[in-house]
């Protein structure tokens, strides 16, 4: 597994929730949107285990219906629990991201001077 997908693993749930928060989507649409924002090396199939897990947590709910053009699609919406979970992920990510960025840029003096 590449470093990138290893790193992404923990935060992919949050990314998927953030997309679904904006609008109701179905699987293929979701994978296209992930690609569009730049997460283009996530294999498309990866989203289905994620979607199943999020449904199990009752963070999203899926409804199967036929679209006007024919295909049968399952549309996902965020639940109230999902909204809360997303908020938590957002704030935790912020708390993490800043120190990590600073650290990895090497701008920290290690307090030994």
């Amino acid at each position: 597994m590449s470093v990138r997908s290893e790193l992404l693993k923990g935060i992919l749930d949050g990314c998927v929730l953030a997309i679904i928060e904006k609008e109701t989507v179905y699987g293929y649409e979701l994978s296209t949107k992930l690609k569009k924002v730049g997460l283009d090396d996530v294999s498309e199939g990866t989203i289905y285990p994620v979607l199943l897990r999020l449904q199990k947590n009752s963070w999203i709910s899926g409804e199967m219906r036929a679209s006007e053009s024919g295909p049968r699609r399952k549309y996902y919406t965020l639940t109230t629990d999902g909204k809360e979970a997303l908020e938590l992920i957002r704030s935790e990510w912020e708390k993490l991201a800043e120190p990590v960025i600073t650290l990895l840029k090497g701008e920290v003096d290690h307090g030994d001077n």
């Binding site: 498309e44 199939g45 289905y48 199967m64 295909p71």
Partner: peptide, 28 residues
């Protein structure tokens, strides 16, 4: 849940197929 998931995967594959993708590219 099984049949819903299988239908989702099938629709995904059909849509991907139209965009020239193979099952292996989509599901690994």
């Amino acid at each position: 849940a099984t049949e819903e998931l299988l239908m989702e995967m099938l629709e995904h594959l059909l849509e991907g197929q139209q965009d020239g993708k193979s099952a292996e590219e989509i599901f690994g």
